[in-house]
Design a protein around this nucleic acid. Structure first.
Length: 276
DNA sequence: CGTAGACCCTGGAAGC
DNA sequence: TGCTTCCAGGGTCTAC
């Protein structure tokens, strides 16, 4: 599932279409598109800038128009050098290909989504500022310092580490996979309350957050099942997962059986020996 | 205000 | 083999 490293990888891959123009659009699942008359508004618009905002993909167009895409669980944005809007190709398209942006120079930008949770929207620059304000601090923002990280998590003393790391209003971009992997790296039990952490442990969690996310970006994300980058290829971090999805298996470090707990309806994994 | 739970969806795995 | 049930899960919305 696309989290910060996966979305960043896609955004990096998409930089090539900056400066291109949207000349066509097709969709067979309009329910995913929040804006009205989306197609009409984006046709003929030039792509000025593409960036990540939390787990959102932001595509700035001309004329104060901004596309916001969220991949949710199984969304994929894939660049196809061919124009898949051509009628014949469209007929034998993939079952899960739901939206296509036809570009002037770079073929098509295809939006695939198996579970149909992903969304598309068209908003104003002001709305982007509003969304930015509603999101927590991004781990790769210059303001993501140890002091700010400490202040942020300290606001939720009675919450456990895992749910705080995953809370988008506090820290932006961490999802269920990395919210298990980061505490493992820090060797801290994800079920522990924030109030219970020592200053050193908070620092360790801070460093582990940056270390794990940086490594995951370097390896172009985690492909457990459906995630693919904009070239349609898998990432590499799934080979480096230590606890996520490994309940019942042995910890690579100590052979203890990895445990699974449900925290706020989400699976959470940890090694009861390594993570105290 | 905070939070628990339902909901949106499909494919794959597990159970029978 | 083939059917049914369960599970995965980010974000939004509703109910308490």
């Amino acid at each position: 599932m696309p989290e910060l490293p996966e979305v960043q990888t896609v955004v990096n891959d998409l930089q090539i279409i900056t400066g291109d123009t949207i000349i066509g659009f097709w969709s067979d699942f309009k329910k995913a598109i929040k804006a009205t008359t989306f197609e009409k508004k984006i046709l003929g618009e030039k792509i000025k800038h593409i960036k990540r905002l939390g787990k959102n993909i932001i595509v700035e167009l001309e004329h104060r128009k901004v596309i916001v895409a969220h991949l949710k669980m199984t969304g994929k944005l894939i660049l196809n050098p061919n124009n898949t809007l051509a009628a014949k190709r469209l007929e034998d398209r993939s079952k899960h290909l739901h939206h296509i942006f036809c570009l002037k120079k770079h073929g098509s930008l295809e939006f695939h989504d198996i579970r149909k949770f992903a969304t598309l929207d068209l908003v104003t620059p002001e709305k982007i500022i509003e969304i930015t304000r509603s999101k927590g601090l991004d781990p790769f923002d210059k303001n993501f310092t140890l002091q700010n990280f400490t202040d942020i998590i300290s606001s939720k003393q009675d919450k456990n580490i895992k749910s705080v790391l995953m809370n988008q209003a506090l820290i932006s971009g961490i999802g269920n996979i990395y919210a298990s992997e980061i505490p493992y790296e820090a060797q801290i039990n994800p079920l522990r309350k924030i109030a219970d952490l020592s200053k050193d442990e908070v620092e360790c969690l801070y460093k582990s957050t940056l270390k794990i996310l940086t490594k995951a970006i370097k390896l172009r994300g985690t492909s457990i099942s459906d995630y693919r980058d904009a070239k349609g290829e898998k990432g590499g971090f799934q080979h480096h997962l230590k606890v996520y999805g490994k309940a019942g298996k042995k910890c690579a470090k100590c052979d203890t059986i990895i445990m699974k707990n449900i925290i706020e309806q989400r699976s959470t994994f940890h090694c009861p020996t390594c993570q105290l």
